[in-house]
């Protein structure tokens, strides 16, 4: 007897739950898959979940966030075959790069603070420090390709810094990001820290840009018009916005990681403290 396999419904991931779009919409990707077409209201719910989860996540120690990110790497490694088959020919190399990137980022969890923070010389009886803090809720717009590495390379630095993210997955191949939700769900990251939407860029980008609860935006591989929309909206409430022209590649993923990538979603605070002398 031949058994029909069961296809997975590709759902979005909001507040730790796998959900369909509140709008009920879905769209075909290729000739077999359908994904949710997320709406403005899904984005709103995701931001609400993120802003609820973010304070707790950022108050966890950097060490703990690093450990949890290692765990994500482990979970991804364990499912590498599934991801590789999802991604096609170059899949194996892309999954390996994504795992390595997570491990590398995990290592930075309690170290970027020392590299980016400074002790500033001032003319007076004060210690003067600049320390970094996560901006809060970060909107992430993934490049279309590479579907998995593009996603991981943008969210890992943001969450390791203590931010919560609301992510719009690759539009042309969203399945990898949606699948990654299962990695997140099994790796001890608190619900709401990572929220994954699928949907239309032109429809959602104005809302990513204008939602005032979103404090930072990171996008890669988007066209000029999207960039304009994101930057204009971000100006409204002074969001930090980084648009990366060259999306990460499987060969050169190392270039996009480290304190420089983490810095995109940090805010700096300078403290004057009276010294005894």
């Amino acid at each position: 007897m031949v058994r029909e396999s069961i296809d997975k419904t590709l759902k979005m991931f909001i507040g730790g739950a796998f959900v369909r779009s509140e709008s009920g919409r879905s769209e075909a990707i290729g000739n077999r898959l359908r994904v949710c077409r997320g709406s403005r209201k899904d984005l709103r719910s995701a931001v609400e979940a993120a802003s609820k989860a973010q304070p707790g996540w950022s108050s966890a120690t950097g060490y703990l966030r690093g450990q949890i990110m290692y765990r994500m790497a482990e979970m991804l490694e364990g499912r590498s075959a599934a991801f590789a088959s999802l991604l096609g020919e170059t899949g194996k190399a892309e999954v390996a790069a994504a795992v390595d990137l997570l491990v590398s980022c995990a290592g930075w969890s309690d170290k970027h603070q020392q590299i980016l923070g400074t002790a500033n010389p001032v003319a007076g009886p004060y210690h003067n420090f600049t320390v970094s803090e996560p901006v809060g809720v970060v909107g992430v717009v993934c490049p279309d390709a590479p579907p998995l590495l593009g996603f991981v390379s943008l969210i890992a630095p943001a969450i390791v810094a203590g931010n919560a993210v609301v992510v719009l997955a690759s539009r042309s191949s969203p399945a990898a990001a949606v699948e990654f939700a299962e990695v997140i769900a099994t790796s001890d990251i608190p619900a709401g820290v990572v929220n994954i939407l699928t949907g239309d860029l032109a429809e959602l980008s104005p809302h990513f840009a204008s939602h005032r609860e979103i404090a930072g935006l990171v996008a890669a591989g988007v066209d000029r018009e999207t960039r304009r929309v994101l930057e204009l909206g971000a100006a409204e409430n002074l969001k930090r916005v980084s648009v990366i022209d060259e999306p990460v590649s499987v060969e050169r993923w190392r270039a996009g990681i480290g304190p420089g990538a983490i810095e995109r979603t940090l805010e700096f605070k300078t403290i004057w403290h009276p010294s005894s002398a």
Partner: peptide, 9 residues
């Protein structure tokens, strides 16, 4: 306004 305000508003 069509824009979602933040809690801190």
């Amino acid at each position: 306004t069509g824009t979602y305000p933040a809690a801190y508003d």
